[in-house]
């Protein structure tokens, strides 16, 4: 599971670099995210713009990493592709995640723009 990361001050941007976030990689994804979070991370943005296919296991893994990040860190999603967006809507998990159309918007929100 390839997971790209960028730091913008205290914001950690994580971007799965593969087109599928599914049962085959869900556990690796969770482990990879946990390994990147540090005490200094105040906000996490999970950029899903490269993920075209998300199944129920992948969705469970995204929920798990939000829970792992904890209530004191901001956690947001950005760049949902159409099939991924549909999974969030059908399961109503779009109601519990902060979802931004793209990474630039997600970063801008944190800067008070």
């Amino acid at each position: 599971m390839q997971l790209e990361s960028e730091e913008h001050d205290d914001v950690l941007v994580l971007r799965p670099a593969e087109p599928r976030l599914d049962a085959a990689v869900a556990i690796q994804f969770k482990d990879a995210v946990r390994a990147r979070l540090t005490d200094a991370t105040r906000r996490v943005i999970l950029d899903l713009s490269r993920v075209e296919f998300l199944d129920s296991s992948g969705l469970g893994a995204v929920v798990a990493v939000m829970k792992f990040a904890g209530p004191d860190r901001g956690f947001a999603l950005a760049g949902l592709t159409p099939a991924v967006d549909k999974v969030f809507r059908l399961t109503r998990m779009d109601q519990v995640f902060r979802i931004h159309p793209d990474l630039a918007t997600a970063l801008g929100v944190g800067n008070g723009q």
């Binding site: 199944d55 129920s56 469970g60 893994a61 929920v63 798990a64 939000m66 829970k67």
Partner: peptide, 10 residues
């Protein structure tokens, strides 16, 4: 959804 389930979506 607010109970943050990790399973049961399939």
């Amino acid at each position: 959804p607010h109970a943050l389930p990790e399973r049961g979506f399939g």
